[in-house]
Design a protein around this nucleic acid. Structure first.
Lengths: 238, 238
DNA sequence: GGATGTTGTAATCGAATGATTACTTAAAGT
DNA sequence: ACTTTAAGTAATCATTCGATTACAACATCC
């Protein structure tokens, strides 16, 4: 039955033609939250904090912009939560490697490491964590999300979390993996270089530039094919 | 004499009270250009491309916003010119070190280098260039300007220049300083780590956090006092 | 089957921002 | 002197964007 439309509207008619509403699928708030955070991570990673809009995040998450804002209050809060999520994923990835190593579950992977780098626990863990780090490039945006936070230090709230988060990583590498301060520094430095190469999208010109090719091979080693594949996939999607 | 005011105005009266005009000092366009670029470098370095406004640049340069826009056309062009300027300064700084070294003008500085790192030309140049790099932290914003370009890769024009610029630096280090690809990579990596530590403003919490202290000392070595001083000065100014 | 809470949107608002227009005013030629 | 050019600003415009308000529709419980 074409029943009575509850027309309780106050001022403006919601309009259109009453047929298409395109309401997104109903999903429990907790799950929707995670979907938004995942979408936000991709958007913020690509365009930075100031360069992203809540509408871009909403579109990426397949919902409306007001819903994003209502769920997180402000764009800044959304960024901070996406940042925490990315930070947590990185910490988890490193800790998983350490735990697996100490449990002796990585016998296979150990054969593929560079023997010249040493065979102690810190030296091997350093190489294994570097691999885990490169693997995160595939997981859309985690590393660039962190990178974007690092250059948004002028925003007080973001800067504070970025500092804390970076020191967290440093302490993890130093205390839990057992690297010396100098080795920890070198490890982080390699990570920042990788972030930069990803940030300037160097993989996109890998085939066209000999220098880019050399630098990427030298930096990513065995993980280069995977990164190149991820780069191409992202270009198709973007 | 309170002569006749040439009131040729078309529509709206320019208004105010006819007394305060506050017109900036008249300066030749070429000189003004450089002043704007210097101001823009500071603003972009601090807030990034998307996070900066042409008005902030104008205020920093002591002129009006329309003048900034008219002189550079668009905000993007302004950013690109500031980027080129920063890139040029970095290249110049490295080349000056190499030239001075090859001319034998750095006998004094060589005594302060780490002997354990080796005494060949590449090894010594690597250390000298690292010092020159750290010195640029003082020169307000050069390094962060570059860093901001590195994370703005999604802007097509900026991304292209960032890629070219980064490869320029790599080639300079490899071909002109004579570092191997692996050593060049490590050199760049240390630079990116320094950028990151500056970006998250770690020097600001140097006194309050033991971890921050250790990481900064380990990364900046002899240049730490200078960076700390620059950090404090910037905080007073900002 | 009506009340209630949850999930979602359309419409809209105010502030910010890049850009444009129309001027002014100080120098520099002539 | 008086025209011309160069250096600079005030006013304003069209968008964009984060946030708010007012609803709508579905689910669940009594």
């Amino acid at each position: 039955m074409s029943s009575v439309v509850k027309k309780t509207m106050g001022t403006g008619a919601p309009g259109t033609d009453s047929s298409s509403q395109a309401t997104a699928e109903r999903i429990p708030a907790a799950k929707r939250r995670e979907l938004i955070l995942e979408a936000a991570t991709g958007v913020f990673a690509e365009r930075g904090y100031a360069g992203s809009t809540t509408d871009q995040v909403a579109k990426a998450a397949g919902i409306s912009q007001p819903y994003v804002v209502r769920m997180f209050g402000t764009k800044e809060t959304l960024f901070l939560e996406a940042l925490d999520r990315a930070h947590g994923k990185l910490m988890r990835a490193f800790r998983d490697v350490i735990a697996a190593y100490d449990a002796g579950e990585l016998a296979e992977e150990l054969h593929h490491l560079d023997p010249a780098a040493g065979s102690g626990r810190p030296e091997q863990l350093k190489q294994l964590m570097a691999i885990a780090y490169a693997d995160l490039v595939e997981d859309r945006g985690i590393l660039m999300m962190l990178m974007q936070a690092f250059v948004a230090g002028h925003e007080p709230a973001i800067g504070a979390r970025a500092r804390e988060g970076f020191l967290d990583i440093y302490r993890l590498v130093r205390d839990e993996a057992g690297l010396s301060p100098e080795t920890s520094r070198d490890f982080l430095a390699q990570g920042m270089l990788m972030n930069t190469l990803i940030g300037i999208r160097l993989p996109e010109i890998y085939e066209q530039d000999e220098t880019a090719e050399e630098l990427l091979e030298c930096t990513l080693r065995s993980k280069l094919p995977m990164v190149l594949k991820a780069s191409k996939a992202q270009r198709r999607a973007g």
